[in-house]
Simulated scan of single mutants.
Amino acid sequence: MRLKKLKLYFSLFRITFSISAFTFGGGYVVIPMMRRYFVNDLALISEQELLDMAAIAQSTPGAIAVNIAVLAGYRIAGITGAIITCIGTVLPPLIILSVISFFYKSFRDNRVISAILKGMEAGVAATIVDILIDMWQGIIREKNLLLTLMAPITFFANFIFNINVLVIIIFCSILCFIQAYIKIRQGGIRGE
């Protein structure tokens, strides 16, 4: 039994370390990688749990990648899993930044490094578009008119009308609370 836990802990560390070391572009890029390992390959958490964790990770202070890794680690292996995934996620950037800061002048002036970083920008953009499509498909599958309309309306509200994102988040949260309250009153959602 103890060996099984140690294998799980090592697996959590290895996965979060490799995700953190080889993904660039922020927390949203980490989500598809976590889906691949934790949902598809190991079946340790469900797709819906991962999306819920992503929503929580976005709304809590700190880096999204670290927040979602900690939530996944906690869900899979409790507080020890949360600590292990946190260390596994934070360690690669610390190592990389330490090396870069030591050789900063060489990295800053190197054309090859600059070209590699420009290429990574395109990969990050493609990964973010992929996760947006996956999340949109999940919203459409729910067949919830409010949620289906909320995404394009909030995009236009911010992009075209330049409404502050905080105002949009608060307004959407209030709408979702009202919708949930109405469903509870109608008996559509059962309390636990």
Rank of each mutant, 00 (worst) to 15 (best):
S46D: 13
A43I: 08
Q48E: 15
I45D: 02
D41C: 05
N40A: 07
V39E: 05
S18Y: 10
V39K: 08
Q48W: 03
I45A: 04
D41H: 10
A21E: 03
F22H: 09
V39I: 07
E47K: 15
G26F: 07
V30Q: 07
A21N: 01
E47L: 12
N40I: 12
G27E: 01
A43F: 12
V29Q: 03
F38L: 14
L42F: 13
D41Q: 15
R36Q: 10
R35D: 07
V30S: 00
I19Q: 03
L42V: 04
A43Q: 15
Q48Y: 05
L51W: 08
R35K: 14
E49C: 05
G27C: 04
Y28H: 06
T23P: 11
Y28A: 01
L51E: 05
M33E: 02
S18H: 07
V29L: 08
V30K: 04
V29M: 05
G25Q: 07
F22Y: 09
T23I: 11
T23S: 14
G26S: 08
F24L: 15
N40L: 12
V39D: 05
P32S: 07
G25N: 06
E49N: 07
R35S: 01
F22S: 13
A43R: 15
P32Q: 00
V29H: 09
G26D: 02
P32M: 00
F38T: 06
I31T: 02
Y28P: 00
L44I: 04
M33W: 02
M34T: 08
I45M: 02
N40F: 12
V30N: 02
I45L: 06
L51A: 14
S18I: 12
A43T: 10
S46Q: 11
Q48V: 12
R36M: 06
V29F: 02
L50M: 12
E49Q: 15
L50K: 12
G27L: 05
A43G: 11
I31E: 06
R35C: 00
F38A: 11
T23F: 11
A21Q: 05
F24P: 08
S46L: 00
R35W: 06
T23E: 01
N40K: 15
Y28G: 02
P32E: 02
G27N: 09
G25P: 08
N40V: 11
N40P: 00
T23K: 11
D41R: 15
E47I: 04
F22W: 07
A43W: 03
Y28E: 12
V30D: 01
G27S: 10
R36V: 01
L44E: 05
G25I: 00
F22A: 10
E47T: 13
T23H: 07
E49H: 05
F38C: 08
Y28I: 04
V30M: 09
F22M: 09
V30G: 04
L50C: 05
Y37R: 14
L51M: 15
I31P: 00
F38D: 03
I45G: 00
I45T: 02
L42R: 13
G27H: 03
Y37W: 09
L42P: 02
